[in-house]
């Protein structure tokens, strides 16, 4: 299960959903695995407003991953800044920009890709801070079925 997915999940119990403490779920006893994949810079830049950054900070801390900056980055922080060495030479021919494809991910962009998309929880559990229920993750798939007395 990708860390990105945790941004969308909450406790499956009806009573917990309206409670602020039911998000994010808290990972524990996790076995992590990196699954490499292509970096999609447009995705990374566009997902920023949909990410709950404080939740992401708490999740990474609980997983023992490198700390995130306190404030969410801006879209432009995720790409290598234009107007670097290349543009300095005056009279240099301006190469045409094929707007999106040329963007190159900055270190921050690469780190965010690694965290959201490539870091997966293979085994472990997710705990709801509201009711204390734990959801198991096995073979990379989380199980949100509730025992009948909790539905």
């Amino acid at each position: 299960m990708k860390i990105l997915t945790l941004n969308f999940l909450t406790c499956a119990r009806k009573a917990c959903k309206p409670q602020a403490t039911s998000f994010p779920l808290h990972p524990a006893d996790s076995t992590l695995e990196i699954q490499e994949s292509d970096l999609n810079i447009i995705f990374l830049q566009n997902i920023l407003p949909r990410l709950d950054w404080p939740a992401l900070i708490s999740i990474t801390t609980e997983l023992g991953l490198p700390g995130l900056q306190a404030e969410p980055p801006e879209a432009e922080d995720l790409v290598v800044k234009e107007g670097g060495a290349k543009a300095e030479g005056e009279g240099m021919e301006v190469t045409e920009k094929s707007e999106e494809s040329e963007k190159e991910a900055s270190q921050l962009g690469k780190d965010l890709h690694r965290l959201l998309i490539e870091t997966t929880i293979q085994e472990g559990k997710l705990m709801c801070a509201c009711c204390g229920h734990e959801y198991a993750i096995k073979e990379g798939i989380a199980n949100f079925l509730l025992p009948s007395h909790l539905v």
Binding site: M1, K2, L4, T5, F8, L9, T10, A12, K17, F23, I141, A142, N143, F144, L145, L146, V151
Partner: peptide, 14 residues
């Protein structure tokens, strides 16, 4: 993103 074992939309945030 992922597949999740669950009943309908229950694992998702409102």
């Amino acid at each position: 993103s992922d597949t999740i074992i669950g009943d309908l939309t229950s694992p998702l945030r409102n």
